Simulated scan of single mutants.
Amino acid sequence: MEEEKSTIEALPEGCIAKILSHTTPVDSCRLSLVSNSFCSAAESDIVWDRFLPSDLISIVSDSQSASSLFTTSPSKKSLYLTLSDHPILINNGKTSFQLEKQSGKKVYMLGARDLSIAWGDTPCYWDWIILPESRFQEVARLRTVCWFEISGTINKRVLSSDSQYVAFLVFKMINAYRFEDLPTKLTVGVLGDQVGLSTKNVWLNPYYDDRERNDEFQGLERPKVRSDGFLEIEMGEFFNSGLEDEVVEMRVLENGGQHKGGFILEGIEIRPKK
């Protein structure tokens, strides 16, 4: 064992760094415990540059914080950790981008301004407010509407390849009403492909007790609280091979005819499945 350890430690640091760059961020951190040589190599820019997206500069090019992002990060590892802990706003502030910390895969959130909202431009139905805890400059607040529909799209080519992705609706419920009459339908699928469409019915109000219902909607999935204080509910998932130039559409719909309100839309987050 001692001889094997000595052989490993005898490898040049650059060689060890090259080896670690072909693992994952988690594996690299674990392997840094093997020896002092591995620990030093695991901090190398050679390793963490491989974990960063090759198109990172073009992704964040229109972000107001892009320049400070690179100048204030003393190393590639520091840059990686910053992007995994702090979403950066892109697309004129309408979309956020970050990295999934364990894998380095891309995560996007389409903000409310980047989504299509039925009657969203009509102030008596929806208005736009500032929410201090939101990552975006403004969020959409439902005043009252009977046709509740939200949709968004993302092209697979901007996501990490060979990855299973999950879309989540991110929102808040404040003095919400009439979301208990009928469940909300969530769909995810490639635009124009009805065969592979994923559809599910859910309750958006996490406090609704449906145990007295005597229909097929009893016991439906409901949202969970995120670490940032918002609610989220899984909409559906899809696989991105990286070979297809396909657009994925995500849709939220409830058109029971009853006026409802108290819903605040943060966005739709698309992140790799764990």
Rank of each mutant, 00 (worst) to 15 (best):
D228N: 02
V60A: 12
V202P: 10
K185W: 10
V252D: 04
R30K: 02
I8R: 00
K101Y: 08
R50I: 09
P53S: 03
T23R: 07
F38S: 09
V225P: 12
I46T: 13
F148L: 09
F263K: 14
G196W: 10
R157I: 13
E216I: 15
A140F: 13
L142K: 06
I264D: 03
K106N: 02
T184W: 08
V34H: 06
P25W: 04
P272A: 00
F238C: 00
K260R: 11
W128V: 07
F263P: 03
E234Q: 11
N255A: 15
F230I: 03
E237Q: 13
E13H: 01
D209F: 13
E237N: 09
I264M: 01
G93T: 03
S21V: 07
P87Q: 10
H86G: 06
S96P: 11
K106Y: 06
T71A: 14
G189H: 08
V107S: 03
W147S: 07
S61E: 05
E2L: 12
V145G: 07
L89P: 02
M109G: 02
I150L: 04
C15M: 05
W126M: 09
E43P: 08
Q98L: 04
Q137D: 15
I117P: 00
S68R: 15
F136S: 07
N91R: 10
E43Y: 10
G93A: 06
C39P: 09
N36H: 05
L79W: 11
S21Q: 00
F136R: 02
L56D: 04
V225F: 12
G236D: 08
S37T: 07
S116E: 14
S21R: 00
D193M: 12
R178W: 08
Y208D: 13
V158L: 00
G262V: 04
D114K: 10
T122Y: 04
E234V: 11
D114T: 03
H86I: 11
V166D: 09
K101C: 05
C15K: 01
S35C: 06
E100Q: 01
K224E: 03
F238Q: 03
Q194I: 15
F51E: 10
S58K: 03
T153R: 13
T199M: 12
F51L: 12
G93I: 01
D162I: 06
T144L: 14
Q64P: 15
N175T: 11
S241T: 12
E221W: 01
V139I: 11
G192H: 11
D127N: 05
I16L: 01
L69H: 11
R211I: 10
V252I: 10
E138D: 13
K156D: 07
F263Q: 03
T122R: 14
A176C: 10
A140N: 04
S241M: 09
R178C: 14
P183E: 01
F179N: 02
F171P: 08
I150R: 09
R143M: 14
F230T: 02
Y165V: 01
I90M: 05
E3Y: 14
G267P: 03
V139E: 09
F179H: 01
I57D: 08
G261P: 11
A118H: 12
L99Q: 07
K101A: 10
S134P: 04
P272F: 00
Y108A: 00
N36A: 09
S75C: 14
D49I: 12
I59H: 07
D127S: 06
F168A: 01
R135K: 14
I46Q: 04
S21I: 01
R157E: 15
E249C: 08
